[in-house]
Amino acid sequence: MKQVEIYTTPTCGFCMMAKRLLGTKGITFTEIDVAGDPDKRAAMTQRANGGRTVPQIFVGDTHVGGCDDLMALERMGKLDPLLAD
């Protein structure tokens, strides 16, 4: 399974929903909290091609986007193939 990274803040409802979906699928992920850390947020924004909102989700080298994008992949049956090695 590819590495999953999710940039979050502690009070973000969309972050919680994205993490819940990943958790229910048994997917382990690395969470990067960008709250109060301008360097981490700048790195997230650069990596996400200008995306400044959280969550920003990456599967391997693929930028998935935010929570809505993750949920759409799941609904279309495209999340599992993306996660597979």
Rank of each mutant, 00 (worst) to 15 (best):
M1K: 03
Q3F: 00
Q3H: 06
E5L: 00
Y7V: 02
Y7Q: 00
T8M: 01
T8W: 00
T8C: 03
T9S: 05
P10H: 04
T11K: 02
T11H: 05
C12F: 06
C12S: 13
C12Y: 07
C12V: 06
G13E: 06
F14Y: 15
F14A: 09
F14C: 08
C15N: 02
M16D: 11
M16R: 12
M16T: 11
M17E: 15
A18F: 13
K19S: 04
K19A: 08
K19M: 08
R20H: 12
L21G: 09
L21C: 09
L21V: 09
L21K: 08
L22G: 02
T24H: 13
K25Y: 03
K25S: 03
G26W: 11
G26E: 13
I27P: 01
I27L: 06
T28C: 12
T28V: 14
F29Q: 10
T30K: 15
T30N: 14
E31L: 07
E31H: 07
E31M: 04
D33T: 01
D33N: 07
D33F: 02
V34A: 10
A35W: 13
A35G: 11
A35Q: 14
G36K: 01
G36F: 04
G36Q: 03
G36M: 03
G36S: 04
D37Y: 06
D37C: 08
D37F: 05
P38K: 11
D39R: 09
D39N: 08
D39G: 09
D39A: 13
D39H: 10
K40W: 08
K40L: 13
R41I: 12
R41K: 11
A42Q: 13
A43K: 06
A43N: 05
M44W: 06
T45M: 15
Q46W: 13
Q46N: 14
R47M: 07
R47I: 06
A48W: 05
G51N: 14
R52V: 15
R52N: 15
R52Q: 15
V54M: 12
P55T: 07
P55C: 10
P55N: 11
Q56N: 14
F58D: 04
F58V: 04
V59M: 07
V59E: 04
V59H: 03
V59G: 01
V59I: 13
G60M: 13
G60A: 14
G60D: 12
G60E: 12
G60V: 13
D61M: 07
D61K: 06
D61W: 04
D61Y: 06
T62N: 05
H63L: 14
H63V: 10
V64H: 01
V64P: 01
V64T: 05
G65P: 11
G65M: 13
G66I: 13
C67L: 09
C67F: 10
C67E: 10
D68G: 08
D68A: 11
D69A: 06
L70M: 07
L70A: 04
L70F: 04
L70V: 04
M71L: 15
A72L: 14
A72I: 12
L73S: 04
L73E: 02
L73W: 05
L73K: 03
E74Y: 00
E74T: 00
E74A: 02
E74S: 02
M76A: 15
M76Q: 15
G77K: 01
K78M: 09
K78F: 05
K78S: 05
K78H: 08
L79E: 01
D80K: 02
D80S: 09
P81Y: 02
P81N: 08
P81E: 05
L82S: 00
L83P: 00
L83E: 00
A84I: 02
